[in-house]
Amino acid sequence: MKNEWPLWEVFIRSQHGLAHRHVGSLHAPDAAMAINNARDVYTRRNEGTSIWVVKAVDITASDPDDKQALFDPAQSKVYRHPTFFPMPDEVKGL
């Protein structure tokens, strides 16, 4: 449909969260209205303290066909997990 409003992806930072988290998408004619709509659709139950909206077409996504090349190599590298290394008791704050 030609007159359909563009799609926006909505990110909300919750009361205690530090990062904005993707919560869903919506349609709106422009960025300001997308913020309004996000407020009305996604923060009705006091979910958020901050809203980001991004045009869905502006998001570059990884290609599902690249999944093996991108992610499989990390599977065999367990030493990248912080729990892999035993920590001496003297080290505080971990």
Binding site: L26, H27, N37, D40, V41, R44
Partner: peptide
Amino acid sequence: PALEEDMALTN
């Protein structure tokens, strides 16, 4: 006219 407007009006 759109889900978003519906929600906004009822809010």
